[in-house]
Amino acid sequence: MGNTPQARRGDTRQRIQDVALELFAEQGYEKTSLREIAERLEVTKAALYYHFKTKEDILISLFQDLARPLDELLAWGQQQPRTLETKQELMRRYSVALESALPLFRFMQQNQAAMSHLRPGETLKDRMIAVGDLLRDPNAPLTDQVRSLSALFVMHTSMFAMQHLDAGPEEKQKAALEVALDLLAQAHPQERPDTPDAA
Protein backbone atom coordinates (compact mmCIF):
# COMPACT_ATOMS: atom_id res chain seq x y z
CA MET A 1 0.00 0.00 0.00
CA GLY A 2 2.84 2.41 0.85
CA ASN A 3 4.26 2.11 -2.68
CA THR A 4 1.10 3.41 -4.37
CA PRO A 5 2.43 6.16 -6.67
CA GLN A 6 -0.80 8.13 -6.51
CA ALA A 7 -1.23 8.13 -2.70
CA ARG A 8 -1.58 11.87 -3.03
CA ARG A 9 -3.22 13.56 -0.08
CA GLY A 10 -3.76 10.81 2.47
CA ASP A 11 -7.43 11.45 1.78
CA THR A 12 -9.51 8.24 2.27
CA ARG A 13 -11.68 8.72 -0.82
CA GLN A 14 -8.55 9.23 -2.95
CA ARG A 15 -6.86 6.18 -1.42
CA ILE A 16 -9.92 4.04 -2.20
CA GLN A 17 -9.89 5.25 -5.81
CA ASP A 18 -6.15 4.59 -6.20
CA VAL A 19 -6.29 1.09 -4.70
CA ALA A 20 -9.43 0.17 -6.66
CA LEU A 21 -7.79 1.31 -9.90
CA GLU A 22 -4.68 -0.75 -9.07
CA LEU A 23 -6.79 -3.86 -8.46
CA PHE A 24 -8.93 -3.26 -11.56
CA ALA A 25 -5.69 -3.04 -13.59
CA GLU A 26 -4.15 -6.13 -11.95
CA GLN A 27 -7.08 -8.54 -12.13
CA GLY A 28 -9.83 -6.82 -14.13
CA TYR A 29 -12.90 -4.84 -13.08
CA GLU A 30 -15.27 -7.83 -13.10
CA LYS A 31 -13.00 -10.01 -10.95
CA THR A 32 -12.38 -7.37 -8.27
CA SER A 33 -14.69 -7.25 -5.25
CA LEU A 34 -15.30 -4.50 -2.70
CA ARG A 35 -14.02 -6.92 -0.07
CA GLU A 36 -10.64 -7.15 -1.87
CA ILE A 37 -10.45 -3.37 -2.13
CA ALA A 38 -11.14 -3.07 1.61
CA GLU A 39 -8.51 -5.73 2.40
CA ARG A 40 -5.85 -4.00 0.28
CA LEU A 41 -6.66 -0.75 2.10
CA GLU A 42 -6.66 -2.54 5.47
CA VAL A 43 -10.08 -1.12 6.36
CA THR A 44 -13.43 -2.75 7.06
CA LYS A 45 -16.01 -3.17 4.32
CA ALA A 46 -18.28 -0.86 6.37
CA ALA A 47 -15.62 1.87 6.24
CA LEU A 48 -15.47 1.45 2.45
CA TYR A 49 -19.30 1.61 2.19
CA TYR A 50 -19.22 4.97 3.97
CA HIS A 51 -17.57 6.41 0.83
CA PHE A 52 -18.75 4.10 -1.97
CA LYS A 53 -21.61 1.58 -2.07
CA THR A 54 -20.52 -0.24 -5.26
CA LYS A 55 -17.53 -0.71 -7.56
CA GLU A 56 -19.35 1.32 -10.19
CA ASP A 57 -19.65 4.22 -7.72
CA ILE A 58 -15.85 4.18 -7.41
CA LEU A 59 -15.49 4.15 -11.18
CA ILE A 60 -18.00 6.98 -11.62
CA SER A 61 -16.07 9.07 -9.09
CA LEU A 62 -12.83 8.45 -11.02
CA PHE A 63 -14.45 9.57 -14.27
CA GLN A 64 -15.91 12.64 -12.55
CA ASP A 65 -12.44 13.58 -11.32
CA LEU A 66 -11.10 13.13 -14.86
CA ALA A 67 -14.01 15.11 -16.32
CA ARG A 68 -13.39 18.14 -14.10
CA PRO A 69 -10.15 19.32 -15.81
CA LEU A 70 -11.69 18.52 -19.20
CA ASP A 71 -14.74 20.66 -18.35
CA GLU A 72 -12.44 23.51 -17.31
CA LEU A 73 -10.51 23.10 -20.56
CA LEU A 74 -13.72 23.15 -22.61
CA ALA A 75 -14.96 26.26 -20.78
CA TRP A 76 -11.63 27.98 -21.49
CA GLY A 77 -11.60 26.90 -25.15
CA GLN A 78 -15.16 28.08 -25.77
CA GLN A 79 -14.18 31.61 -24.71
CA GLN A 80 -11.17 31.83 -27.05
CA PRO A 81 -10.91 32.84 -30.71
CA ARG A 82 -10.76 29.81 -33.03
CA THR A 83 -7.17 30.46 -34.14
CA LEU A 84 -4.32 28.02 -34.69
CA GLU A 85 -2.56 29.46 -31.62
CA THR A 86 -5.63 28.79 -29.42
CA LYS A 87 -6.04 25.26 -30.78
CA GLN A 88 -2.39 24.45 -30.15
CA GLU A 89 -2.64 25.78 -26.59
CA LEU A 90 -5.81 23.71 -26.12
CA MET A 91 -3.84 20.63 -27.24
CA ARG A 92 -0.99 21.42 -24.82
CA ARG A 93 -3.46 21.71 -21.94
CA TYR A 94 -5.23 18.55 -23.07
CA SER A 95 -1.89 16.72 -22.98
CA VAL A 96 -1.42 17.72 -19.32
CA ALA A 97 -4.96 16.57 -18.44
CA LEU A 98 -4.33 13.22 -20.15
CA GLU A 99 -1.08 12.67 -18.29
CA SER A 100 -2.82 12.90 -14.91
CA ALA A 101 -5.53 10.50 -16.13
CA LEU A 102 -3.14 7.86 -17.51
CA PRO A 103 -4.02 5.14 -14.94
CA LEU A 104 -7.72 5.53 -15.79
CA PHE A 105 -7.05 5.27 -19.53
CA ARG A 106 -5.01 2.12 -18.88
CA PHE A 107 -8.00 0.72 -17.00
CA MET A 108 -10.29 1.53 -19.96
CA GLN A 109 -7.90 -0.18 -22.37
CA GLN A 110 -7.62 -3.31 -20.21
CA ASN A 111 -11.34 -3.53 -19.37
CA GLN A 112 -13.03 -2.79 -22.69
CA ALA A 113 -15.72 -5.45 -22.21
CA ALA A 114 -16.71 -4.04 -18.81
CA MET A 115 -16.60 -0.46 -20.16
CA SER A 116 -19.16 -1.30 -22.86
CA HIS A 117 -21.95 -1.53 -20.27
CA LEU A 118 -20.74 1.00 -17.69
CA ARG A 119 -22.14 4.55 -17.72
CA PRO A 120 -18.93 6.59 -17.22
CA GLY A 121 -17.48 5.79 -20.65
CA GLU A 122 -20.25 7.73 -22.41
CA THR A 123 -19.51 10.86 -20.37
CA LEU A 124 -15.86 10.80 -21.36
CA LYS A 125 -16.71 10.17 -25.02
CA ASP A 126 -19.02 13.25 -25.04
CA ARG A 127 -16.21 15.42 -23.70
CA MET A 128 -13.73 14.12 -26.26
CA ILE A 129 -16.21 14.94 -29.04
CA ALA A 130 -16.57 18.46 -27.57
CA VAL A 131 -12.77 18.94 -27.56
CA GLY A 132 -12.69 17.72 -31.17
CA ASP A 133 -15.34 20.29 -32.08
CA LEU A 134 -13.14 23.07 -30.67
CA LEU A 135 -10.19 21.88 -32.77
CA ARG A 136 -12.09 21.34 -36.03
CA ASP A 137 -13.27 24.10 -38.36
CA PRO A 138 -16.57 22.84 -39.90
CA ASN A 139 -16.01 25.10 -42.93
CA ALA A 140 -12.50 23.81 -43.64
CA PRO A 141 -11.80 21.22 -46.38
CA LEU A 142 -12.54 17.70 -45.16
CA THR A 143 -8.84 16.73 -45.14
CA ASP A 144 -8.10 19.63 -42.76
CA GLN A 145 -11.00 18.64 -40.50
CA VAL A 146 -9.59 15.10 -40.40
CA ARG A 147 -6.12 16.48 -39.56
CA SER A 148 -7.57 18.48 -36.66
CA LEU A 149 -9.44 15.46 -35.24
CA SER A 150 -6.42 13.22 -35.82
CA ALA A 151 -4.36 15.54 -33.60
CA LEU A 152 -6.66 14.66 -30.72
CA PHE A 153 -6.44 10.92 -31.37
CA VAL A 154 -2.65 11.03 -31.69
CA MET A 155 -2.58 12.06 -28.02
CA HIS A 156 -4.68 9.02 -27.07
CA THR A 157 -3.04 6.41 -29.26
CA SER A 158 0.38 7.50 -28.03
CA MET A 159 -0.49 5.99 -24.65
CA PHE A 160 -1.11 2.53 -26.13
CA ALA A 161 0.21 2.26 -29.70
CA MET A 162 3.68 3.50 -28.67
CA GLN A 163 4.05 1.20 -25.64
CA HIS A 164 6.76 -0.87 -27.35
CA LEU A 165 8.83 2.02 -28.67
CA ASP A 166 12.22 2.42 -27.07
CA ALA A 167 11.57 5.68 -25.18
CA GLY A 168 10.39 6.82 -21.77
CA PRO A 169 6.78 7.91 -21.12
CA GLU A 170 7.70 11.63 -21.06
CA GLU A 171 9.58 11.34 -24.35
CA LYS A 172 6.65 9.56 -25.99
CA GLN A 173 4.17 12.13 -24.73
CA LYS A 174 6.38 14.99 -25.94
CA ALA A 175 6.72 13.36 -29.38
CA ALA A 176 2.96 12.76 -29.59
CA LEU A 177 2.26 16.38 -28.67
CA GLU A 178 4.71 17.59 -31.32
CA VAL A 179 2.95 15.48 -33.98
CA ALA A 180 -0.48 16.70 -32.78
CA LEU A 181 0.63 20.36 -32.95
CA ASP A 182 2.06 19.76 -36.42
CA LEU A 183 -1.23 18.23 -37.61
CA LEU A 184 -3.10 21.29 -36.34
CA ALA A 185 -0.64 23.58 -38.16
CA GLN A 186 -1.16 21.60 -41.40
CA ALA A 187 -4.93 22.01 -40.96
CA HIS A 188 -4.46 25.83 -40.84
CA PRO A 189 -2.02 26.61 -43.70
CA GLN A 190 -3.13 30.23 -43.91
CA GLU A 191 -2.08 30.84 -40.28
CA ARG A 192 1.29 29.08 -40.35
CA PRO A 193 4.15 31.54 -39.95
CA ASP A 194 6.20 29.68 -42.59
CA THR A 195 3.42 30.06 -45.21
CA PRO A 196 3.80 33.43 -46.95
CA ASP A 197 0.43 33.35 -48.64
CA ALA A 198 -2.43 30.82 -48.61
CA ALA A 199 -3.12 31.70 -52.25
Rank of each mutant, 00 (worst) to 15 (best):
F63R: 01
E36F: 02
L104D: 04
T123D: 15
L90Q: 13
N111Y: 07
P5S: 03
S150D: 13
R35G: 12
L23C: 02
D137R: 13
L73H: 02
E36Q: 15
L70P: 00
F107A: 10
P169D: 09
R40G: 01
D65A: 12
S150L: 13
Q64H: 05
V43W: 01
G28N: 03
L152E: 05
L74P: 01
G77Y: 06
L59E: 00
D11A: 11
L84H: 06
V179T: 14
R9D: 11
Q64R: 08
A180K: 09
F52D: 01
L134A: 15
T44W: 00
A198V: 14
N3D: 11
F105S: 07
R119K: 12
A47N: 03
T195G: 05
T83W: 08
A75M: 01
R119W: 11
P141K: 10
D144A: 15
T83M: 04
M162V: 03
R35M: 05
R92W: 10
G28D: 05
E178M: 06
A38N: 01
A47D: 00
M115D: 04
L134T: 03
A180W: 07
L66P: 01
E171P: 13
P193D: 04
A185C: 08
E36W: 02
D11H: 12
T32E: 01
L134E: 05
L124T: 07
P103R: 07
D71W: 01
L135E: 04
M162S: 15
Y49P: 00
A7H: 13
T44P: 00
A7V: 08
G10C: 02
T195D: 08
L41R: 01
L135S: 01
V154T: 15
I37Y: 03
F107C: 15
A198H: 08
V19Q: 07
E39N: 10
Y49E: 00
Q186T: 06
P141R: 02
H164S: 12
E72T: 11
V96D: 07
M1P: 10
H51G: 02
D65I: 03
P120D: 04
P189F: 02
K31P: 05
V96S: 14
R8M: 14
E30A: 04
D144W: 04
H156A: 06
Q110C: 09
F63G: 00
E30Q: 09
E36H: 09
T157Y: 12
P138H: 02
K87F: 14
L102K: 09
